[in-house]
Design a binder for these strands. Sequence first.
DNA 1: CCCCACGTAAACAAGCCGTAAACACAGTGG
DNA 2: CCACTGTGTTTACGGCTTGTTTACGTGGGG
Lengths: 235, 235
Amino acid sequence: MTRQRRILVVDDEPQIRRFLRTGLSVQGFEVIEAESGAEALRVAPTARADLVVLDLQLGDMDGLDVLKRLREWSWLPVFILSVRDREADKVKALELGADDYMTKPFGAAEFVARVNALIRRIPEIAAQPKFSVGDLTIDMARRQVFLGESEVKLSPKEYQLLQFLARHAGKVATHQQMLNEVWGPGHAEDAHYLRIFMRKLRNKIETDATRPRYIITELGVGYRLLAPDQYDAAS
Amino acid sequence: MTRQRRILVVDDEPQIRRFLRTGLSVQGFEVIEAESGAEALRVAPTARADLVVLDLQLGDMDGLDVLKRLREWSWLPVFILSVRDREADKVKALELGADDYMTKPFGAAEFVARVNALIRRIPEIAAQPKFSVGDLTIDMARRQVFLGESEVKLSPKEYQLLQFLARHAGKVATHQQMLNEVWGPGHAEDAHYLRIFMRKLRNKIETDATRPRYIITELGVGYRLLAPDQYDAAS
DNA sequence: CCCCACGTAAACAAGCCGTAAACACAGTGG
DNA sequence: CCACTGTGTTTACGGCTTGTTTACGTGGGG
């Protein structure tokens, strides 16, 4: 096997945490725990877990909100547990970015088998709350952007756009994709916004906005935030 | 936008295939079908599907055997359907390499949501988004083309054309096919465009555009991008 | 010898992109 | 209650890349 896999279990009931922990550690997983949504969101960015097991019923907040917040910066696999068996609940969770959904009560064997099936699909890195190219660093957990040591203040839309680019670093982000993600559906025609906000972004993060080194425009298609290897190759 | 996802549905009951097909095609998936284990194993290698939906109960053989045989050469995601709800059955299927397991009867909405959750994970696994012949490399995930180490800048139409050729490498791409794919329907008469853009492509990727080594013209039919073995044989 | 399909070259037109500036709007603090 | 500040939207324009149009050259087969 590769290195040991780490799993973050989020549940407010101690006996369920215990049940999950024993099942998972027998399989050789390292288990870390959080007993509330707030704690989960606090430890997730630094925990470097490979998978999150999330109970929908938490003491302090709705599990779906935790999932939503997590998905703002991480595509870490998420395994949902719930007592609710309605199909609509499952569909909602899956559409929000969950990878599997089990209804309590369930058997430990199936749970572990499903966790293994998910883990198997994750090559190495999926969490990565930080992204870096050259002098540019994006801390997605803290919603902060740095150029070298100094922070760059971005407006909400500017940040959303840059984050989307970072999540697809190296690949081309289509006009459609960005308009859909940042402005929502129904703005497919407003490709014009992109030009204006790309200009603003470049003015803030590029040293010479007329010769961009980070945000490359792919004419007729979209924009590309260079991945580290591409950035190095362009030097 | 990414390309359309293709799903292979394996089930011996026509009404279930129909049920799945309607649910999936509404979501924009392309569905291909197999009604037996043998047929599934026969078409799978060439079908270039992104996901397999496999019923455990087939006319000719056990679904688990199909899964086992498939896993000998492919790590394509597999979604298991079954009437059996025993935990041991689920665990066995998951351990054999299945990615999800649903018990019949089930709702179409949850099924589609789970399929989407699986598909979503694909680009990270992405079997083989790169194509290479000789010094030419096409990185389809990043939408980049290289000649040796240095990148070749292509315009949208140029890239679309080259990508189409690469997807059919070794085989002949017809005039009609290319005009349909790149220029859309209604340009069947404009075979002239092809000559102009092939020239542009050759100028960018061939060392001597008058003696092409990659893009061969098949007189009266179309063009062909050599597959690696053909390229080696021509040296 | 001529015809057909393909290759080549240049000029043209449209679409796309970058840039700037004015405007509307909300939140803040005096 | 009002100026001030930052943000997002709207409008306008010039320049460059791209795709299209047009024209001519080439080479093999009937």
